[in-house]
Computed example of a mutant assay.
Amino acid sequence: MDVGASPQGGVVYVCGEESPSQVKLRIDRLGQQKKPVTLQMLPETDVDAIIASVEKLDLSLLIVDSVQTLYTSELPGLSGSISQIRECTARLIGFAKSKNVPVMLVGHVTKDGEMAGPKVLEHMVDVVLELTGDRYYDLRLLRTQKNRFGASDEVGVFKMVESGMEEVKNPSELFLAERESGAVGSAIAVVMEGTRPVLVEVQALVVESELPIPRRVSQGVDVRRVQILLGVLSKYTKLNLGTKDVFVKIAGGLTVKEPAVDLAVCLAVASSVSGKPLPNTVAAVGEVGLLGEIRSVSWSEKREKEAKKLGYTLFYSRSSHKKVSEIVKNL
């Protein structure tokens, strides 16, 4: 609804998933009915009927929700099949190019987070945007997976509120707003979301295990990466982790996949084991290798600048320490 509220011309919203009355209820709840835009709803799933209905209109945007519901009677098979999705998309692309009207296709995703339907669908369109979020958090990330007209590494950060999504201009402040000063088992990492550096809190809890095989549980970071880092700590820092349960979490619901979070995970675990907190002004960035070395990561200067801007004047990285054991021994 927010996207359809900005163009100056007419906007047609093709309702393949919901009825127009259901969509209107959502518009009323979000308060978008006051926006100066001509929004028309078209409850249709036949792609040929859709094109015939809109080709004579003065449009600035056509929104189709969703592409998996479309079909054409000229092809066999049900809507959502590979042939139907491919053909319907091709016809909408032809309409968009001939009329010079942008078309936005809303698509389903699978349980694995991949776009449902044929992979060729992603190759046919000009831009692929992915909106992700955790159902238990109000944070939403809009990532660019493909962009023929510009950069594909930009990320939009939004917060879901009652009236829709609001832009988060400083995500770092959002993630660190509830961090406790002097907390044991807490470390600050600077990760990159697109080209934007974001400070996040890495939390670790290490306790004696009551099980024959100690547990390694993580949320927001790959558990296999955590297991590797625990092995490195056991080998090169002499921390006794073999009989302990280790829990690691990225506070705030963010999922971090880049290796730059390695050093912060190691420091959070070491802090929990020693019972001593890290200094409040420390931020850490670096990949940790199997030999216990701290390796450089991309955008290091940009990350350090963002950390110091938010008051984290001590920056642990490859430039300050060569080995993770050099930092851990001081805890």
Results as ranks from 00 to 15, higher is better:
Gly16Lys: 15
Val190Ile: 14
Gly77Arg: 02
Val168Arg: 01
Val12Thr: 06
Ser218Phe: 05
Phe158Leu: 15
Lys146Asp: 12
Glu201Tyr: 00
Ala268Met: 12
Tyr137Gly: 09
Ser272Arg: 03
Gly185Lys: 00
Gly194Asp: 02
Lys305Phe: 04
Gln203Arg: 15
Val200Ala: 04
Ser98Glu: 09
Lys249Thr: 03
Gly220Cys: 08
Tyr13Asp: 10
Gln219His: 09
Val23Ala: 06
His123Ala: 10
Val54Lys: 10
Asn330Gln: 07
Gln68Trp: 02
Val47Met: 01
Glu180Ile: 05
Arg295Tyr: 02
Asn170Val: 03
Gly80Ile: 00
Gln145Ala: 13
Ile93Ser: 03
Leu92Lys: 13
Val47Gln: 03
Ala283Val: 00
Ala189Gln: 00
Glu306Ala: 11
Ile50Cys: 04
Cys15Gly: 09
Val221His: 01
Val120Arg: 08
Thr195Met: 04
Arg216Val: 05
Leu105Thr: 01
Val324Ile: 04
Ala270Trp: 01
Asp245Gly: 07
Arg140Lys: 07
Pro259Leu: 00
Arg196Leu: 14
Asp48Asn: 13
Ala183Arg: 15
Ser234Val: 03
Ile188Gly: 07
Asp262Cys: 07
Val269Arg: 14
Ser317Met: 04
Glu301Gly: 07
Cys88Asn: 11
Glu287Ile: 11
Ser79Glu: 07
Asp138Ala: 06
Val285Leu: 15
Gln68Asn: 00
Phe247Ala: 03
Leu42Thr: 01
Pro7Val: 05
Gly182Thr: 06
Gly80Gln: 03
Thr110Pro: 10
Ser81Pro: 11
Ser79Ile: 13
Asn330Val: 07
His108Arg: 15
Glu258Cys: 05
Ser319Gly: 08
Val282Ser: 00
Glu44Cys: 14
Val223Asn: 12
